[in-house]
Design a protein around this nucleic acid. Structure first.
Lengths: 203, 203
DNA sequence: GATTTTGGAGAGCGACGCTATCCAACATAA
DNA sequence: TTATGTTGGATAGCGTCGCTCTCCAAAATC
């Protein structure tokens, strides 16, 4: 398969494929001469994955590269699985955000968070800070209620991690983290619409 | 309060405040002369809100303006509340995405979605498409399980909408949609870490 | 032999969210 | 009153990002 075929098969413009090659999101094809390389189904699948991560996943090219690196070279400890998955994800947050409110919430929930996941704690802190700054009243009970719902989700997800191979486990956690987020947000909105319709009449 | 004081009080640079004024995110101060205007606490609060929406909320300046417009001029029908809240939010999705899988999922869930919320349906469709394109196996049961968790959240949210005034209701739904999203995602990650630690040992 | 395509590299582009500069009108402190 | 600094307002520039365009000579294809 040559580059123009790869472009047709994937729906990604040739110039963009060349850009992804330069950026290291896609491994190079097998060179058969100075101006010819062969690409295969693996490249097509990889391109689809890249587009999913950048498009719906909303990742930057740099973050996409880090995620793909983790898929390509998985750290082989179940222990670090989540840290690895989370490390390169989510909006970057200032180092110096005040995490005390977040910490005390985690205490109340009884959640254990290893130091490897400071990033997620900072994201929680930033979200709580933003709610306060926007003068949006969210009681602690409401936050806890959100937390319990997310815990129910996480419980099932962790139970469903395929353990037969490290690759499969890493893939499940990394892609599950990135690609399920837009799904969750869309479902929440639709659930709100449905709940509102049932409560206040269909009209 | 003059602009430099407003800047100090809000932590937003003067040049940026001027930019927000130009973009219509902030109403102008009371002019007292050709080169002097008065700002008040309302401007400080508004600036905090703007920064929360743009920063943690991840909205563009244009989307922020639309959201603020809805807060400033709320459509006075409970019926359109969610449509209004969702209209200007979330990643824009191609008009021509295939929504059939999303529709059938909504059928299975028994969720009613008014035509006003095509946007959310398209976001759901895009998320499902991306998962498939990335070759990430998510069974229908798993999707339904996510949906039920989000439904539990939405149910409480809708029940909690303050009905005493339209302004308060619109504010609750609009800000609740935007600013709670990062909170939910952070909580999910932390819940995963906790669930994983409890399942596979603290180490 | 003529035309098209390729890999590769570099520059350019359009959108975005600011940021820096300049100005004359004013306020303020000495 | 004079010297200094600040303001509102307008405009231009900047840095990042995700591409996209252009050019090239070597090779493939007709």
């Amino acid at each position: 398969m040559r580059i123009s075929e790869l472009s047709r098969a994937s729906g990604v413009p040739v110039a963009t494929i060349k850009y992804y090659l330069r950026e290291g999101l896609l491994h190079e094809g097998q060179l058969t001469s100075a101006t010819q390389a062969q690409y295969d189904e693996g490249h097509v699948a990889r391109l689809r994955l890249v587009r999913a991560l950048i498009g719906v996943g909303g990742l930057s090219v740099a973050a996409t590269r880090e995620v793909l690196d983790q898929l390509d070279h998985p750290a082989d400890s179940t222990h670090d699985l989540l840290g690895a998955a989370h490390r390169s994800l989510g909006p970057a947050v200032d180092e110096d955000v005040d995490t005390s409110a977040a910490e005390s919430l985690l205490d109340r929930l009884g959640w254990q968070v290893r130091s490897a996941d400071r990033q997620a704690v900072r994201q929680l802190a930033a979200a709580l800070t933003a709610l306060e700054a926007a003068d949006f009243p969210l009681s602690e009970d409401e936050v806890v209620s959100y937390a319990q719902a997310m815990r129910a989700i996480a419980e099932r997800e962790v139970a469903d991690v395929p353990l037969e191979s490290t690759e499969a486990a890493v893939r499940y956690m990394v892609l599950g983290t990135v690609l399920v987020e837009p799904l969750l947000l869309a479902l929440r909105r639709l659930a709100q619409v449905d709940a509102s319709a049932r409560r206040y009449g269909t009209r």
